[in-house]
């Protein structure tokens, strides 16, 4: 196996298993033929087309779930970052901030939080469409979705009742001498649990063949 072939095989792994079983062989053949001799890497165009094609093959449910899990993971990373910083003084914005936090990060935080919230319902809807008629995986996936949202409720409550906010309310936004991080350590295991739930959801989705898959093939002449 040449280096190019190994890398093409690796790129083709972006496609779901049910699709690869049907198509990976001939796609590899085409990829190798389309690459000029002496190349060790498939071209950027080919790699991009494979990435887009694999997302199409996996369907909307998977695409939206990837975005949802991605923004959620970025949020978890942000909360971890917050746990190592002192709170912002004296105002407390709608997302928690640390003292001297660059405006760019605050804006990105708002954007991420809005995207995560906006994706929550579409993820559920497209997922349930995908699982049409499948009992156990649909129930497991839906359960993970509900559990994931339930986990976010205490986080949201902690954030509005965070020590920084309380101090702001009680002392008229004077946090002089305040020495606690913006988030409590309790939020970190919640984030870890959410990420684990997301991983389970993605696994269940990845193992499901969508209703509209590679059409049945009939060889009319051999």
């Amino acid at each position: 196996m040449t280096r190019l072939e190994r890398r093409c095989r690796w790129l083709l792994r972006a496609y779901p298993g049910w699709y690869r079983r049907e198509r990976a062989g001939e796609m590899l053949d085409t990829l190798l033929e389309a690459s000029p001799p002496g190349r060790n890497w498939p071209s950027f165009r080919e790699a991009r087309a494979l990435a887009i094609g694999s997302l199409r093959a996996r369907g909307w449910a998977f695409f939206l779930s990837i975005l949802w899990a991605g923004t959620g993971a970025a949020g978890a990373g942000y909360i971890f970052l917050l746990s190592t910083h002192l709170p912002a003084i004296p105002t407390y914005s709608r997302i928690p901030c640390w003292a001297g936090e660059p405006g760019v990060i605050i804006d990105a935080g708002y954007l991420g939080a809005a995207a995560w919230l906006a994706l929550t319902i579409p993820v559920l809807v497209t997922g349930l469409i995908r699982f049409n008629g499948l009992g156990t995986p649909a129930a497991a996936w839906g359960g993970a979705w509900i559990a994931g949202l339930a986990l976010m409720v205490p986080v949201a409550r902690w954030q509005t009742s965070a020590p920084a906010v309380q101090a702001c309310n009680n002392q008229g936004c004077s946090l002089a001498g305040y020495s606690h991080a913006v988030v409590s350590w309790g939020e970190l295991p919640v984030c870890a649990a959410w990420l684990a739930l997301e991983a389970v959801m993605m696994l269940i989705l990845a193992r499901t063949t969508p209703a509209r898959c590679v059409p049945q093939r009939t060889v009319t002449s051999t």
Partner: peptide
């Protein structure tokens, strides 16, 4: 056409009945 684009198109065209597999 990139390989990924071609096979996405072939998937759709076979599903629509415009193209069929004739030889393997």
């Amino acid at each position: 056409l990139a390989t990924g684009t071609l096979y996405t198109a072939l998937d759709r065209l076979t599903a629509d009945g415009y193209v069929e597999l004739v030889r393997e």
